[in-house]
Design a protein around this nucleic acid. Structure first.
Lengths: 147, 147
DNA sequence: TTTCGTGCAAAGCGTTTGCATTCAA
DNA sequence: TTGAATGCAAACGCTTTGCACGAAA
């Protein structure tokens, strides 16, 4: 039996059931934050806050942080450390991917998890280590900047 | 001709020449910080500060930060993001390695760069991307915690 | 009605900066 | 002697927290 970092990515739209099933309440703020994360793609807490505020409703910073933490715990969103600054959040419904981040131009390339499969298999068999592929960020220099 | 993230790891002990050759001054603080990084292995700026302070000489936090930045620019030290908190620094003289970090027990396993070679080769040929192997941190669940 | 969730404001942590002083060259 | 490096203290960016109020259930 194999292990995966996140075994049950909940179906999109089912977030209401996911919240309720664990006894959490359904609030407009939680919906707004989740929608913003889905819409923005890779966004920092601050960007999410900005997006939510444009969306007519005022939400507090601390609510954004608390909500992101909750949504991540529920497996609805995920985060990765793409810059040396704030982490970025994206929907767990989005296909899992690895980030290539260029140190020079700060460009981001999303690549298929297939690329890291040999690595995943290797550390699994050697160390029993289960890689969190969606969280993986590879730093380096992109093709344009390397030349 | 192959590429490496850092082609000229300066010989240990040659840090004085490395500093001088670029017009930087030799100060006791710089020596203390470099020695602390080499001694501690993987240490945060704060831990480095503590270690230096035990070593008899008082050094300011800002000097530690400025020195680490300089030493990294000179290729004498390197950093990786092992926790969600502060980065850790280690000597560039140490053999390059990849970090496996367990989300549950926070244990760190150092593995050979050979493990990521397929990944490195793949993104190089597909995207022309040159991976900074020494900076790579793989998050997941270690064998003990997974079982 | 009863908690849970939120807003607010303050504090927290890690890091950076401006400026006067010190010291390597 | 002189300018690079340091110490100090203040500010910074991002995140967390305590507490009173508000609103889901």
């Amino acid at each position: 039996m194999t292990h995966h970092a996140h075994e049950h990515p909940p179906p999109a739209g089912d977030w209401q059931a996911t919240l309720r099933s664990k006894g959490y309440r359904l609030t407009p703020q939680r919906e707004l934050v989740l929608r913003a994360v889905e819409r923005l793609g890779h966004a920092t807490p601050d960007e999410i806050l900005g997006a939510v505020r444009e969306e007519s409703q005022a939400v507090n910073v601390s609510t954004v942080y608390r909500t992101l933490e909750l949504l991540e715990e529920l497996g609805l969103v995920r985060h990765a450390h793409i810059s040396d600054r704030a982490p970025t959040y994206h929907s767990a419904a989005a296909p899992e991917h690895v980030h290539l981040v260029c140190r020079e131009c700060h460009g981001i390339t999303e690549v298929s998890p297939a690329v890291v499969e040999p690595l995943v298999a290797s550390v699994r068999s050697t160390y029993g280590f289960e890689t969190d592929v969606g969280h993986l960020t590879v730093f380096g220099t992109c093709g344009r900047c390397a030349s």
